[in-house]
């Protein structure tokens, strides 16, 4: 049981930090522009696919740099020529625009790369077990993922709090007009933030693609989870996003690792039911079975009892 706990923690950490890379970009975009970007996970998918195509020619390492940049540029273009135009029609229109964009990107990916799973692999140099614990390998690539995610968090934190551009961005979040009056080009800042945010999602895709498999449904699997994280953590809060990412990553990992379920609870309570009871499905539920829907349950509960999220300062 002990080894399961250790590996569950490691897995949860990897997933959580990966989710954070997506959530950080999303929350940055949201806090600046008030746009909940539904297509965020689609940029993550684009990152993986771009990296796959680039790595066919140059190998993994150039793709690690090039693909996120490409995705970021694409994101900036979307902001400049799409979102900015829709901005006039209000927030609902913006949300719906990104919703349509997510739909479109998924279709476009299927058009360009086909529907079959792509054989996108981690680089050979990281293709060894970092350590073996209780008979299970911990791949070096996963350690690399953890390293990249933490580096991104530190860099982002540093940029936002210690640099001039970070201070301007922070100011633009709360007082866009004042920042504009001070002579800063606010639309340019928006575009840059959107580009960087989507670029981060692309980077997450590049490093997650080899592990979580690169296929057209990969955005769908992650899309709403990232939303859940941003909302649970509190809209616009970077620290909240980090905490919520780790929370959800670990929660799911532990839930899967556990073997508990309703039968155990009922045994403990001393209640028993016949097998053909109409609610039999509920009495047989186990934690691993419902692990992937726990985040949604958490989301609904958090929104009911604390609509601003764990760390959020504003409500919508």
């Amino acid at each position: 049981m002990f080894e399961v706990l250790i590996f569950a923690t490691l897995n949860g950490l990897v997933t959580g930090l990966l989710l954070f890379m997506l959530a950080s970009g999303l929350t940055l975009i949201f806090s600046m522009m008030g746009v909940l970007n539904f297509a965020h996970a689609s940029f993550y998918m684009l990152g993986a696919y771009f990296a796959y195509s680039i790595s066919l020619y140059t190998g993994f390492w150039p793709a690690l740099i090039l693909a996120p940049v490409l995705v970021g540029v694409l994101g900036a273009l979307v902001e400049r020529y799409g979102l900015r135009r829709v901005h006039k029609s209000g927030h609902v229109a913006e949300l719906i625009f990104t919703f349509g964009l997510a739909f479109l990107i998924e279709e476009a990916v299927q058009f360009f790369w086909g529907r079959a799973t792509k054989d996108y692999r981690s680089p050979d140099i990281l293709d060894f077990p970092l350590f073996t614990l209780f008979g299970q390998n911990f791949p070096a690539y996963k350690a690399f993922m953890i390293f990249i995610s933490i580096a991104i968090f530190i860099a982002l934190y540093f940029v936002l709090t210690r640099t001039r551009i970070g201070i301007i961005i922070q100011a633009a979040i709360t007082h866009p007009h004042t920042v504009g009056n001070l002579g800063h080009n606010v639309p340019l800042i928006f575009m840059a933030v959107f580009g960087v945010g989507t670029g981060l999602a692309g980077l997450a895709g590049v490093i997650a693609g080899p592990v979580l498999t690169t296929f057209p449904g990969m955005a769908m699997v992650l899309g709403s989870i990232v939303f859940v994280i941003v909302v649970i953590g509190g809209l616009g809060s970077l620290a909240g996003a980090l905490v919520a990412s780790l929370l959800i990553g670990l929660l799911q990992s532990y839930a899967i690792a556990s073997d508990l379920g309703m039968p155990d609870l009922l045994n403990w309570l001393g209640v028993s039911f016949e097998r053909d009871h109409p609610l039999n499905d509920i009495w047989r539920l186990t934690l691993p079975q419902i692990a992937p829907i726990l985040p949604y349950l958490l989301l609904v509960l958090v929104l009911i009892f604390r609509p601003s999220g764990l760390f959020g300062k504003r409500e919508s």
Binding site: M1, E3, V4, F7, A8, N11, G12, V14, T15, F134, G135, Q136, V211, L212, V221, L222, I225, Q252, S253, I256, A257, P288, P292
Partner: peptide
């Protein structure tokens, strides 16, 4: 399921 590693951990153990 995003990542099957937690399931694999159980299989291994």
């Amino acid at each position: 399921v995003k990542d099957f590693t937690p399931y694999v951990t159980k299989i291994v153990s």
